[in-house]
């Protein structure tokens, strides 16, 4: 971990991401305004000392809305990451360790990966109907094959290493071999991949919301804030600019962290992962 702390861009990413995440987590303690409270007389107030990020078309505080909105955006990203961690590892390990399953699983993941990522997510979300959980499911389905593929590649390498052969020789069960010996050694590429998945999930959630396929506007995410504000971009640019910057900070932070993880944990990886 120490080399990570010396990695300049990783630290920059960590600071960016942590700042955004902390603000979102601590929203109720730092913002006293209610993100849903309307005050029509105060509509379209530009950023000022009273309203740091201005107010929207219904006079709601954008500071509160961006802070609370981050909770949903990050929660969606985190949920996608969690699903990726579970199913990506499961499928990747199965494919890498059980040669008989490899062909079928990888052809299926090839087929899913043949669709452009965001486009497939759009298709699934459109079919399932727009809610926050369908956005999570859609994005998970899109990114799991990519995670599984990376894990499989690592498993294929690690399973041939001496200590795994040794474990097999002393009669360890398959489950034990995979869980105790193989997976821990595949952690590095997984962490790298998951930090990128997090970044893409936050970005893609915004795209889905922009198309009206994400969470409903009653629980605003950053994507929804941009989508609602876009009609007022000339008169009240802060409605779109502020959540846009929030997304950019988060994604930039995650990307920088992913780069850092890759440099430090797994220098062999070079090719961009999506």
């Amino acid at each position: 971990m120490i080399p990570l702390l010396r990695h300049r861009s990783f630290m920059l990413g960590l600071v960016l991401f942590a700042a955004v995440a902390l603000v979102a987590l601590a929203a109720p303690f730092i913002v006293d305004a209610d993100p849903a409270r309307m005050a029509l007389r105060l509509r379209f107030k530009p950023p000022s000392s009273e309203f740091l990020f201005g107010t929207d078309n219904l006079g709601r505080s954008m500071l509160a809305r961006v802070c609370y909105g981050g909770r949903l955006s990050l929660a969606i990203g985190l949920a996608v990451v969690a699903l990726n961690a579970v199913f990506g590892v499961l499928i990747g390990a199965l494919a890498g360790y059980v040669p008989r399953l490899d062909g079928a699983l990888m052809r299926l993941s090839d087929a899913l990966m043949a669709f452009p990522a965001v486009l497939l997510a759009i298709g699934i979300a459109a079919a399932l109907g727009p809610t926050a959980s369908t956005a999570v499911i859609a994005l998970a389905i899109v990114y799991i094959p990519r995670t599984a593929r990376i894990l499989r590649a690592s498993v294929l390498v690690v399973r041939r290493l001496d200590f795994v052969e040794a474990a097999r020789a002393i009669g360890c069960g398959h489950l034990r071999i995979v869980a105790r010996h193989i997976l821990p050694n595949c952690l590095a590429p997984l962490i790298v991949q998951l930090s990128f998945v997090f970044a893409y999930a936050v970005l893609s959630e915004a795209v889905l919301s922009f198309l009206g396929l994400g969470a409903p506007p009653s629980v605003p995410s950053w994507g929804i804030l941009i989508s609602e504000g876009r009609g007022y971009i000339r008169e009240a640019p802060w409605l779109t600019v502020v959540p846009g910057i929030a997304i950019a900070m988060t994604v930039l932070g995650l990307n920088l962290m992913g780069d850092g993880f890759r440099d430090v944990l797994d220098p062999r990886l070079r090719v961009e992962q999506i």
Partner: peptide
Amino acid sequence: MYNTSLVMSEQLKAAGINAELLVLD
């Protein structure tokens, strides 16, 4: 329509009615 329902739900809540938004496409 969305803003209408939003303000109406606040007014109903003020009268002690358990109003809830269902936002669909």
